[in-house]
């Protein structure tokens, strides 16, 4: 059995019906329906087939320093492409595009965020603040 790639991506259970006929001596049919379910799984959520991870040889920028009150500073926060492991004949394109989200101190970064905000359509963030109370504090961003 081979199911088409793609169409899909939602796990579902498909019954396979089998009809068993045990006729009487005089060939009078006696049918019994047997149902066997096959579960079709989504490879995009199965680590056996698709796994996305960061290439350790290409770390994101870290330990960036910003002087409070200085002009906005841009940081390209993604300088790598996620790698995808592929198992079997399945094409990873069928899983759709890879999306990113940026968090700063566990808060989603948007163009309207304070201190650290994103630039729409780019993988670049900017840092700008005049809040002197942040002096010597460390913020953690993650992707």
């Amino acid at each position: 059995m081979k199911l088409p790639d793609g169409s899909h991506l939602t796990e579902r259970v498909t019954p396979i019906n089998s009809t068993v006929n045990v006729p009487t001596y005089y060939d009078v049919p006696q049918t019994n329906l047997l149902v066997q379910n096959i579960t079709v799984k989504n490879p995009c959520v199965d680590p056996l087939y698709v796994t996305m991870f960061q290439d350790p040889t290409m770390p994101v920028p870290y330990d960036y320093e910003y002087v409070i009150g200085s002009p906005p500073t841009q940081i390209v926060y993604i300088n790598f492409e996620p790698l995808i492991l592929i198992s079997g004949e399945f094409l990873p394109e069928n899983c759709g595009t890879v999306d990113h989200a940026l968090y700063y101190n566990d808060t989603l970064v948007t163009p309207n965020s304070l201190t650290v905000f994103s630039i729409p359509g780019t993988t670049t963030l900017q840092v700008y603040t005049t809040d002197i109370s942040l002096t010597h504090q460390t913020g953690i961003y993650k992707i």
Binding site: M1, N21, P43, D46
Partner: peptide
């Protein structure tokens, strides 16, 4: 009986027993 969209897999035939076993049967 699970199939992850990828390649060809072989689903085993449904297995069953029938009594009396000497009765003819087709599936």
């Amino acid at each position: 009986l699970s199939y992850t969209i990828s390649d060809t897999v072989y689903v085993p035939y449904v297995s069953y027993t029938w009594e009396p076993s000497f009765c003819r049967q087709t599936m």
